[in-house]
Simulated scan of single mutants.
Amino acid sequence: MRPEVTDLEIRLLLEAIYQRYHYDFRQYAIASVRRRLLQALSGLHCDSISGLQERILHDPHMFPRLLAYLTIQVTDLFRDPEFFLALRRQVVPILATYPSLKLWIAGCSTGEEAYSYAILLAEEGLLDRTLIYATDINDDSLRRAQAGIYRLDRLQQFILNYRAAGGQGSLGDFYHADADNAVMSQELRRRITFADHSLATDSIFSEVQLVSCRNVLIYFDRELQDRALGLFAEALCPRGFLCLGTRESVRFSAHATRFQEMGTGQKIFRRID
């Protein structure tokens, strides 16, 4: 199959998804979408993108399976611990000056990022006055995030990350374990609201002091990156914090002048007026 034909099929498929299910992947980076769809063809036993489109349109049970390929679900508790260490040392003392806090974790996947923030804020004595909004477009991921259940064989990496991120006690204080899983504590879960939200189509829903959207923008094209950064700028209070992934930046975006990078060595920015 010629690349230009494959890309045409992809554009038609993404338009069909938008029209049928109201999920908008049309401005995701084409190279990333192509790679994920080719993986989906194998996993879903389809011979072509056009064949996949036919199944998606006529079998609503197929779409959630495809959505798992189109959305990113690779994460850990305290992923990139050096980021959370910088957050703890240089951002949390400023957040502590607010009488109440709201955080927005955009693209929260299965919840590990949101729970990482909750644990950090609990150790710093701020969780009781904090509300964390954790949003994603994948309903299955949101259900798993809300349950807060993770396999025990992942805990070793979680613990290593937690310690490297400046953890002050024992990660075990924030979950209980059964035979196979670790379940995040009710103390954490009651401070997090998980909700469906699309950076491609939805608007802001609250003023917040911090937005974390790490390793999401790299999958968007420039126009959708600008839309997302515009939403974050609107949602943030004056001098609020924006946290991005290591390969992401506001440089060259339409909203570059609305943010100033902090000297943390991490991709942490403040909104400026």
Rank of each mutant, 00 (worst) to 15 (best):
residue 39 Q to L: 14
residue 107 G to K: 09
residue 47 D to W: 05
residue 77 L to Y: 13
residue 35 R to G: 10
residue 63 F to K: 10
residue 54 E to Q: 15
residue 33 V to T: 15
residue 108 C to H: 09
residue 41 L to E: 14
residue 37 L to K: 12
residue 38 L to Y: 12
residue 54 E to S: 13
residue 50 S to P: 00
residue 34 R to V: 07
residue 101 L to F: 01
residue 112 E to P: 06
residue 23 Y to V: 08
residue 61 H to V: 04
residue 38 L to Q: 12
residue 94 I to E: 11
residue 66 L to K: 05
residue 111 G to S: 00
residue 69 Y to V: 05
residue 56 I to L: 10
residue 111 G to K: 02
residue 35 R to T: 03
residue 109 S to M: 05
residue 57 L to W: 06
residue 49 I to N: 12
residue 23 Y to N: 12
residue 56 I to N: 06
residue 48 S to D: 05
residue 101 L to H: 06
residue 49 I to A: 15
residue 70 L to V: 12
residue 83 F to G: 07
residue 103 L to Q: 04
residue 44 L to Y: 10
residue 47 D to C: 01
residue 79 R to K: 14
residue 72 I to L: 10
residue 28 Y to I: 07
residue 41 L to N: 15
residue 37 L to A: 09
residue 68 A to Y: 01
residue 99 P to L: 05
residue 43 G to Q: 06
residue 113 E to A: 02
residue 81 P to S: 07
residue 40 A to F: 03
residue 54 E to M: 10
residue 95 L to G: 07
residue 41 L to D: 15
residue 78 F to P: 08
residue 60 P to H: 05
residue 94 I to L: 10
residue 105 I to N: 04
residue 34 R to N: 14
residue 88 R to H: 06
residue 57 L to N: 07
residue 92 V to G: 00
residue 87 L to P: 08
residue 25 F to V: 15
residue 96 A to P: 02
residue 57 L to I: 14
residue 29 A to V: 06
residue 98 Y to L: 07
residue 99 P to I: 00
residue 50 S to L: 09
residue 19 Q to D: 13
residue 58 H to M: 05
residue 96 A to Y: 03
residue 40 A to C: 08
residue 103 L to S: 00
residue 100 S to A: 13
residue 98 Y to A: 07
residue 64 P to W: 08
residue 87 L to I: 01
residue 23 Y to T: 08
residue 41 L to H: 13
residue 19 Q to Y: 04
residue 30 I to W: 02
residue 48 S to V: 08
residue 22 H to Y: 01
residue 79 R to Q: 11
residue 38 L to C: 03
residue 111 G to M: 04
residue 43 G to T: 00
residue 82 E to N: 08
residue 25 F to S: 10
residue 46 C to M: 14
residue 39 Q to T: 08
residue 100 S to G: 08
residue 45 H to Y: 09
residue 85 L to C: 03
residue 94 I to H: 14
residue 82 E to T: 00
residue 90 Q to W: 05
residue 63 F to P: 12
residue 103 L to C: 05
residue 86 A to M: 02
residue 60 P to C: 04
residue 90 Q to R: 11
residue 44 L to H: 12
residue 50 S to A: 15
residue 87 L to V: 03
residue 21 Y to H: 10
residue 24 D to S: 13
residue 40 A to N: 01
residue 54 E to I: 03
residue 103 L to W: 01
residue 67 L to S: 01
residue 33 V to E: 10
residue 74 V to F: 15
residue 92 V to W: 06
residue 49 I to E: 15
residue 50 S to H: 12
residue 43 G to C: 03
residue 35 R to C: 04
residue 26 R to S: 06
residue 30 I to S: 15
residue 41 L to A: 13
residue 47 D to M: 00
residue 33 V to I: 13
residue 70 L to H: 13
residue 110 T to Y: 00
residue 107 G to N: 14
residue 25 F to E: 15
residue 93 P to Q: 03
residue 109 S to N: 11
residue 28 Y to N: 11
residue 62 M to D: 04
residue 42 S to V: 09
residue 63 F to T: 09
residue 75 T to E: 08
residue 46 C to D: 06
residue 52 L to N: 14
residue 30 I to F: 06
residue 36 R to V: 05
residue 76 D to Y: 10
